[in-house]
């Protein structure tokens, strides 16, 4: 290896060094985002195994298609790929769900009661009880229950820290849509988490 490097000419050595730098840069980028990507996928699927598969697919597609781009372009592109994988997963699940619902139709099953789903106004709210650890579970549930676009807007814009333009690029929608989804997500989360108290 060292001998190979010694035999290289100046430009070859520079090119090899750049390639190594690129390799390290993209690995650093993936290492930085992979945990948050997993959590985002987990909110969407509610299953860790499925979420791991989605993140792995997203990493493969991102490196293959966009690995040669400049590092500044990577964040919105990576999240865009993951967002696309999550959408595909939901689409497949909807189709499968329709078939299963048709096969396992049970008219005696009780319908979901929307009154039961409302937050109890007398309840102090989980974020008021951070110490007991229920807040994390409540947050997971609240995020998982958000509509997909609202959740993505909240996580990408506020947690991941993308600006509105990059978030819109990652979500493949207009900047106005990002603002709308984010605003609705905040209203929903505030209501679910009792943060207004």
């Amino acid at each position: 290896m060292l001998a190979d490097r010694c035999l290289m000419t100046g430009p070859e050595r520079l090119s090899a060094a750049t390639a190594v730098d690129d390799e390290q840069a993209i690995e650093r980028f993936l290492r930085d985002v992979e945990r948050r990507a997993l959590r985002m996928a987990e909110f969407a699927t509610r299953q860790r195994e499925e979420a791991l598969d989605l993140v792995q697919d997203a990493m493969f597609a991102f490196v293959r298609r966009y690995g040669a781009r400049t590092p500044q372009e990577w964040p919105p592109l990576f999240w865009r790929v993951l967002d696309s994988r999550i959408h595909d997963w939901h689409r497949r699940r909807r189709v499968r769900g329709r078939w299963l619902a048709w096969l396992e139709r049970d008219e005696d099953a009780p319908a979901d009661d929307p009154i039961l789903a409302l937050a109890d106004p007398a309840e102090p709210g989980p974020l008021a009880r951070l110490a007991d650890g229920e807040a994390a579970a409540a947050l997971d549930a609240a995020l998982a229950d958000l509509p997909l676009r609202q959740r993505q807007a909240f996580l990408l814009r506020l947690w991941e820290g993308l600006d509105v333009t990059a978030t819109a690029r990652a979500m493949r929608c207009s900047e106005g849509s990002v603002k709308t989804h984010l605003s609705r997500a905040l209203v929903n989360l505030r209501s679910r988490l009792g943060a207004h108290r």
Partner: peptide, 16 residues
């Protein structure tokens, strides 16, 4: 996650 990352990095890339 680490294995997935390494596997993703080992594949060829599309020249941009």
């Amino acid at each position: 996650l680490r294995r997935a990352r390494h596997a993703a990095l080992e594949q060829p890339r599309v020249a941009w």
